[in-house]
Design a protein around this nucleic acid. Structure first.
Length: 779
RNA sequence: GGGCCAGUGGUCUAGCCUGGUCAUGACGUCGCUCUUACACAGCGAAAGUCGGCGGUUCGAAUCCGCCCUGGCCCA
C-alpha cells in the first residue's frame, strides 16, 4: 500500500516571517552552549570583533561581516567542533565622547568627569540594545547570554592587569617626546588615528639674511608661524644654487635668531626654493631631523593649540590666527617675496578632522620596536584567509618607527592604574586583580617607597582603546580568571575581522598577547572585505552614502541577506551593497523552497538494492559538490559553498535531474524499485543540500529540515560525507547537452514540451534512455 | 613617492596560481511557454577588442615587461 503524498510545505515561496519563530525556538532549545571539550570534541574558539555602538543606522557592511562570522562559527560546529562564539560590545573610546559632547553641547574638559561618564553610558546603552537586536535578527548563534562589554569592571580590570604585568616586565616607559596631538580632541594620537587630506594652504617664501654679508637666502614654508622654532635650514647636497651657503649662518626673520645652513639629502630641490626650514615641530620630517641631528627643540605650540611664550608677541594666539597675522606682517615688512596658495597633503585627526600638531609631551609608551622581528615571524606563521591580506600586516610591521604611545587624555576609557607620590613624583603601580580609578579612588598606597611621603596623586590619563581591544582573545578565554578554561581555549582558533583594522586591532593584539603569553593570540586570521556603496565607494557615515540594513532584513529576511553576503564577493574582497542583489538572493531561497516542496510530496523510502544510472549520476555530482563545499568551509570561505550550491541546485539538480526522474518519482513509469530509487535519491540530495547550506541560511534550512526530516534542529547535525559515486565529467556534460538539444529542437519545430518527438539517444547515454524517453516523450 | 588589490557583454562576477574546449554564472533586456514543485518559473535569443601596448609561445583572459584607470593603505 502506498502512502498518500502529503505536502508538508505551504505556499509557493519561503516566508521570512517564519524566521522569528525559529529564533525563539533556538533560544529555548539552547543548542549552542559551550563547554570546553564537551563530548570529547575539539574546541574551536572565535575571537570576534566586539562592535562599537557608534550610532544608527549600523553600517550594513559591518552587519554583513557579522553574518559571515556566524557562518564560520556554524560551519565549525557542523565540522564537528565544540565552538566558543563570544558576543561582546566595544564601549571604550573617543566616538561616544564626541557624540556626547555634541548631543548635550558640552565640553569634556569643562564637565565633571563622573557626570560626563554617565552621559556616555546612556548613549552607549541605547545603541547597544539596537545592535544586539539586529544581531539577533540576523540569526547570529553567538553566546548572547554571556555577552561582555569592554567598559565593564571585569574587562577593565583585565586591561589594567595586562598593563601591570607589562609594567613589571619593564616594557612600559614614560618619555617626553614629540607626539602627534590633536588640539581639538585634546589628546595624543597613535599613528593609526591619523588620516590625510588635500587641503589648501599658503606657501610663503621669505628672505633670510645671510650673516655677515649682503646675501639673502629665500626659504619657502607652509608653517611661517613656526619661524621662532626654526633651528636649521637645509638644502640638497647637489643643489648648485646654495653650495657656497652650506656651513654659514642665516638670520631668522622677525625673530632674529641665527641658524646654520646644512646640506641634507632629504631637501627636495624642486619644492619651493629648494631651501627648507626645520622647526620643532612642523611635520614628521622635522621630527626626524631633530632626532638625527640632535637639535634643541623649542616648543612653539601648547596642548590647546595656542602659541607659547616662545612665539613672543604671538603667544596665546591660535595656530591659525598666528599664521595669518604673521603672514601679514611678513608681507608688510617686505620679508615675504611670494605668498601662493597650494594644495597640501595635510595630516588630520581621524575623529575631529583637525590638522594634527606635533608637540613634545610626557606619555606612556609600550615597547614594540625591539620585538618587531619576532612579530614578523608570528605574522608569517599565522594562517591568513585569504593569504593575500597577510601583506597588509607585514607592511605595517615594516613601517613602524616608534614605540606605541598608550596614554590618552580622555574620560570614557580604562584608567591607567598609577599613583604618584605627591612629594617626589615616584609612580606607584598597584597589584593586579582589581579595577582602579586613580582619578577618583583613594590611593591603595600608604607610604612612598622612595621618600616615605604619605600622600599620593592619582593618574588622570586613560589608555588608548586598542589597549582594551587587543586583549579580547585573552578575555574570552578567561585569562587570569579561570586557568583550566584558559588552558583549554587559548590561543583562540580564529580571529575574524575586517581588513581595515589589520594595522590596529590585529597588530596590537599580536603585540600585547605575545608580550604577555609569548604566543600569538590565534592560529587563523579571517579577513573580510569592506562593504561599499552601489558605486564602489567606501560607505562612511561622513559621506552620507549609508544604507539602513534594517528595512532590508525586514523585507527580504535574514537568510536572503545572509545568502547575499556569502555569495556576493569572494573571501577578502570588497563587496557592494544594493537592494537588487539582496532581492536576487531571495530568489534562490524561493527555488530551494519549491524544490523542497516538490520532494516533500514523496515519502522517503529505504535505500533500494540498486539505483538507476540517472541516480548514480546525480549522486556523483553531489559527491563533488560536497567535496568543494567542505574545502570552502575549511578555508572559512563562504563564497565557495554558497555559489557552488546555487549552481548545483539551479542548473544541475532542478533543471536536469528532477525533470528526468519526475515520471519515476510519481510512479507513472517503471518498476516500484525504480520509483523508490528516484524518491530515495531526491531526498538524499535534498538533505545534503540543506546540511551544506545550514551555516549560511540557518532559518529556511532548519524549517525545511524539521518539516521533512523529523522535529530536531538541523544545526546539531554534521556535514554529509562525499559518497563513492563516480561518473565521468564528460558523460555528465553530454547528458545535459543532450537535454538542451532536445529542448532546442522542440522549440525550433514549434512543439510543446509534452509533445512527442523522434530523436536518437546517443549511444553513450544508453544507461539513461528510460528516463530520457519519459522526460522528453521520445517516440 | 611606496605598497596591496582590482579593471572580463548594460551592471556584477567565475576562470588567472597549474597557458590550449565555441570565456562561467547571476541581475537586467527581448521573444516564446501555465510543462502534474516553482510565472519570485521554464526554454530560447541578443549582447564581450577579457583596461591599453609590447614580449614569451605552435597557442595567452591566464606567464613576463611597461603604461593607463579606480579603490584601500602607508610615507
Amino acid at each position: 500500500m502506498e502512502a498518500q503524498p502529503v505536502p508538508k510545505l505551504e505556499g509557493t515561496n519561503w516566508n521570512p516571517g517564519l524566521e522569528e519563530e525559529l529564533r525563539k525556538l533556538w533560544e529555548t532549545e539552547n543548542n549552542y552552549r559551550f563547554e570546553p571539550n564537551k563530548d570529547k570534541k575539539p574546541n574551536f574558539v572565535l575571537d570576534t570583533p566586539p562592535p562599537y555602538p557608534s550610532g544608527k543606522p549600523w553600517h550594513p557592511g559591518a552587519l554583513t561581516q557579522y553574518s559571515q562570522i556566524d557562518m564560520v562559527a556554524r560551519s565549525a560546529r557542523m565540522r564537528g567542533y565544540n565552538v566558543l562564539y563570544p558576543v561582546g560590545i566595544d564601549r571604550n573610546g573617543l566616538p561616544v565622547e564626541i557624540a556626547t559632547e555634541r548631543k548635550y553641547r558640552i565640553q569634556l574638559r569643562k564637565t565633571p568627569r563622573d557626570e560626563f561618564i554617565t552621559l556616555c553610558k546612556h548613549a552607549l546603552d541605547d545603541i547597544e540594545a539596537y545592535m544586539l537586536e539586529l544581531l539577533k535578527k540576523l540569526g547570529i548563534s553567538g553566546d548572547f547570554e554571556n555577552k561582555y562589554r569592554t567598559d565593564s569592571e571585569e574587562y577593565r580590570k583585565l586591561t589594567q592587569w595586562s598593563f601591570i604585568e607589562l609594567w613589571e616586565k619593564k616594557l612600559i616607559y614614560i618619555a617626553n617626546r614629540p607626539n602627534v596631538y590633536c588640539t581639538d580632541c585634546g589628546t595624543a594620537l597613535a599613528d593609526a588615528e591619523i588620516e590625510y587630506e588635500e587641503r589648501p594652504t599658503y606657501l610663503v617664501t621669505n628672505r633670510f639674511k645671510v650673516k655677515a654679508s649682503d646675501e639673502e637666502l629665500l626659504v619657502a614654508t607652509t608653517r611661517p608661524e613656526l619661524l621662532e622654532a626654526c633651528q636649521l635650514v637645509i638644502v640638497h647636497p647637489e643643489d648648485e644654487r646654495y653650495k657656497d651657503l652650506v656651513g654659514r649662518k642665516v638670520i631668522v626673520p622677525l625673530f632674529g635668531n641665527e641658524v646654520p645652513v646644512a646640506a641634507h639629502p632629504s631637501a627636495d630641490m624642486s619644492f619651493g626654493t629648494g631651501a627648507v626650514m626645520i622647526c620643532s615641530y612642523g611635520d614628521y620630517h622635522d621630527v626626524q631631523l631633530f632626532r638625527e641631528l640632535r637639535l634643541r627643540e623649542i616648543v612653539a605650540i601648547d596642548s590647546d593649540g595656542k602659541m607659547t611664550a616662545a612665539a613672543g608677541k604671538y603667544a596665546g594666539m591660535t595656530v591659525k590666527d598666528a599664521r595669518s597675522q604673521i603672514i601679514q606682517e611678513l608681507q608688510e615688512a617686505k620679508i615675504a617675496t611670494k605668498v601662493e596658495q597650494i594644495q597640501h597633503r595635510t595630516p588630520l585627526c581621524e575623529r575631529s578632522h583637525t590638522p594634527i600638531e606635533i608637540i613634545p609631551m610626557q606619555e606612556y609608551y609600550l615597547k614594540q620596536l625591539e620585538f618587531l622581528p619576532k612579530l614578523r615571524k608570528l605574522a608569517k606563521a599565522m594562517e591568513f584567509h585569504p593569504d593575500m591580506h597577510r601583506q597588509i600586516l607585514s607592511n605595517w610591521i615594516d613601517s613602524l618607527t616608534t614605540d606605541y604611545p598608550i596614554s590618552r587624555n580622555r574620560y570614557y576609557a580604562t584608567e591607567i592604574p598609577i599613583w604618584y607620590c605627591s612629594k617626589c613624583n615616584e609612580p606607584h603601580v598597584p597589584k593586579p586583580g582589581r579595577y582602579y580609578r586613580p582619578w577618583k579612588d583613594e590611593s591603595p598606597f600608604k607610604k612612598c617607597v622612595k621618600c616615605g611621603n604619605q600622600k599620593f596623586i592619582g593618574e588622570t590619563k586613560t589608555f588608548d582603546t586598542w589597549m582594551d581591544s587587543s586583549i579580547s582573545a585573552l578575555f574570552v578565554t578567561k585569562w587570569n580568571r579561570d586557568q583550566a578554561f584558559h588552558q583549554a581555549t587559548y590561543p583562540a582558533s580564529i580571529r575574524t575581522q575586517g581588513k581595515d583594522i589589520i594595522r590596529t586591532w590585529l597588530y596590537y593584539s599580536m603585540l600585547k598577547c605575545y608580550l604577555l603569553t609569548e604566543k600569538a593570540p590565534f592560529e587563523h586570521a579571517w579577513i573580510g572585505g569592506l562593504g561599499q556603496d552601489a558605486s564602489g565607494r567606501a560607505m562612511r557615515k561622513s559621506l552620507g552614502n549609508f544604507m539602513d540594513p534594517e528595512p532590508l532584513l525586514q523585507k527580504y529576511g535574514a537568510d536572503a541577506f545572509r545568502f547575499w553576503g556569502a555569495s556576493e564577493a569572494n573571501l577578502g574582497y570588497d563587496f557592494r551593497l544594493s537592494e537588487d542583489r539582496v532581492a536576487g538572493a531571495g530568489k534562490f531561497l524561493t527555488k530551494l523552497w519549491n524544490t523542497a516542496r516538490f520532494i516533500g510530496n514523496f515519502p522517503e523510502p529505504k535505500r533500494p538494492e540498486t539505483l538507476t544510472q540517472t541516480d548514480e549520476w546525480i549522486l556523483a555530482e553531489l559527491a563533488s559538490l560536497i567535496k568543494e563545499c567542505k574545502e570552502g568551509y575549511e578555508d572559512f570561505n563562504l563564497f565557495v559553498p554558497s555559489t557552488k550550491i546555487r549552481e548545483f541546485l539551479w542548473n544541475v539538480f532542478a533543471a536536469h535531474y528532477i525533470e528526468m526522474v519526475k515520471g519515476r518519482a510519481y510512479g507513472d513509469v517503471g518498476r516500484g524499485e525504480d520509483r523508490d530509487a528516484a524518491r530515495y535519491t531526491l531526498h538524499l540530495i535534498m538533505k545534503s543540500m540543506l546540511l551544506l547550506l545550514a551555516p549560511i541560511t540557518p532559518h529556511i534550512t532548519d524549517h525545511i529540515w524539521r518539516r521533512l526530516y523529523g522535529s530536531k534542529t538541523i544545526h546539531l547535525e554534521s556535514f554529509p560525507e562525499a559518497g563513492q559515486h563516480k561518473v565521468a565529467k564528460a558523460e555528465s556534460q553530454e547528458l545535459m547537452e543532450f537535454n538542451i538539444e532536445v529542448w532546442k529542437t522542440k522549440r525550433e519545430k514549434g512543439l510543446a514540451l509534452k509533445d512527442s518527438i523522434k530523436i536518437e539517444v546517443p549511444k553513450k547515454l544508453k544507461g539513461y534512455s528510460a528516463d530520457l524517453t519519459r522526460m522528453h516523450h521520445i517516440s
